[in-house]
Computed example of a mutant assay.
Amino acid sequence: MTALLLVHGRSQQMAKELGRDQDAVDRYVAGKTRTWLGGLARGFVLSGAGPVPADVTYFPFYGNDLADALVAYEAAGGPRPDLEAGVDIAALHREMVIEAAEETGFLASHHMLDHDAATIDAVREVERLRRSGQEAGWSDLLQLKIARSALQFLSDKTGTAEWVIEQYLRDVAYYLADRGARDLVQGHVRRSMEQARDDGHGEIIVIAHSLGTVVAYDALDDLPEGVTVRLFVTAGSPLGQKVVRRNLRGPDVGSERRPVPRSITPVAGQPTWVNAYDVRDVVAVIHPIAHLFSGGDASIRDERTHNPLYPHAIDDYLSDPDVAGPIAQALAADR
Rank of each mutant, 00 (worst) to 15 (best):
A108K: 05
H110G: 09
H111W: 12
H111N: 09
H115T: 14
A117D: 15
I120Y: 04
I120H: 09
D121N: 13
A122T: 04
V123G: 00
R124W: 08
E125Y: 13
E125W: 12
V126S: 07
V126R: 08
E127A: 12
R130E: 14
R130M: 11
R131W: 14
S132N: 13
S132H: 13
G133E: 01
E135K: 14
A136G: 09
G137H: 14
G137K: 08
D140M: 12
L142Q: 03
L144T: 13
K145Y: 11
K145R: 11
K145I: 12
I146D: 06
A147Y: 02
R148E: 15
S149H: 11
A150N: 01
L151Q: 01
Q152M: 09
D156T: 08
T158I: 03
T158N: 05
G159H: 08
T160Y: 05
E162I: 01
W163V: 11
V164D: 15
I165N: 10
Q167E: 14
Q167L: 15
Q167A: 15
Y168H: 08
L169M: 10
L169K: 06
R170M: 14
D171T: 00
D171V: 00
A173C: 00
Y174R: 04
Y174I: 00
L176W: 04
A177I: 00
R179A: 13
R179T: 06
G180C: 07
G180F: 06
A181L: 08
R182F: 01
D183E: 12
L184I: 00
V185L: 02
V185F: 02
Q186H: 09
G187V: 00
G187W: 00
V189C: 00
R191S: 13
R191Q: 14
M193Y: 04
M193S: 03
E194N: 07
Q195R: 10
D199S: 03
G200S: 09
H201K: 08
G202H: 02
I204A: 04
I205K: 04
V206Y: 10
A208S: 13
H209S: 05
H209V: 10
H209D: 08
H209K: 03
H209N: 06
S210M: 05
L211N: 10
